[in-house]
Design a protein around this nucleic acid. Sequence first.
DNA 1: GGTAAACTGGATATACGCATCCACTTTAGT
DNA 2: ACTAAAGTGGATGCGTATATCCAGTTTACC
Lengths: 140, 140
Amino acid sequence: MFSQTVEYALRAIVHLAKSPDALQTTAQIAKATQVPGPYLSKVLQTLTQDGLVTVRRGVSGGYLLGKPPERLTIYEVVQCVDPIRRIHTCPLELSSHRKRLCSLHKKMDNAMEGIETVFRNTTLSELINSPNPSVPLCNT
Amino acid sequence: MFSQTVEYALRAIVHLAKSPDALQTTAQIAKATQVPGPYLSKVLQTLTQDGLVTVRRGVSGGYLLGKPPERLTIYEVVQCVDPIRRIHTCPLELSSHRKRLCSLHKKMDNAMEGIETVFRNTTLSELINSPNPSVPLCNT
DNA sequence: GGTAAACTGGATATACGCATCCACTTTAGT
DNA sequence: ACTAAAGTGGATGCGTATATCCAGTTTACC
């Protein structure tokens, strides 16, 4: 359903959100999130391109969250690394369905709209400050 | 988001549901649904294994819907060919998250639960009899 | 300014989803 | 029984997501 890359990106972002002001190296993030280091570095590059994380290169460099966790949604993260593609036009390209999807594709798009809504309304701040006793990425 | 295989399977099922009592050959379904014939035949095999479609082999054979469209949901079709996997256990295998997912994975699972609910509550009958002027698979 | 820490970009390897092909089996109709 | 229509099962090809590796660049610190 959700790609491995999405899972990894979200873990990384959550980890960064937990220590908003401390630079984290790829190795540190990889260890905390159990994501393969070399692949994580690619994912972080993608997140950097959209400004979701900020990078400082060189010695004692690392990554920081690119914007305050209250204003960063998991929707942005997902769209950055592996976008949810809503169904806007008929996959069969039936001309008469251009303006109005048929019931099948409308239903499929509804389902995706639901996900989109959940993700748009979920900020990193909300995840971090959840009263849930299970702390993300953390074996308490 | 949804795999190509899911899209193909749903098209095929919808096509069969539109003519509940007429055997349809792979070639006929392929044409109507714009799905590559050889691949469709694999998808139909999978659907057959779960009894979602019924097959008659040999001359003048073909496929039929395996159960009445009022009792066939698109959830069954999706689960047959490319199952939605809910998050039941912590992807990081953190022992303390076993009983209770953290906020991140809970949210992701919520999103999938939403899809599951939509699909569980959508029957083929509902899709076929929709008042929607765009008829599935049909350029009216 | 030299050095080591750390990210970058490109090349490469691997697995799986999508797609095709063909020899085989089943079956209706003659 | 023979034949042709039609599905079955297995082998194969191809592209992309996942994952790794390394040479190059940037930068803090001495």
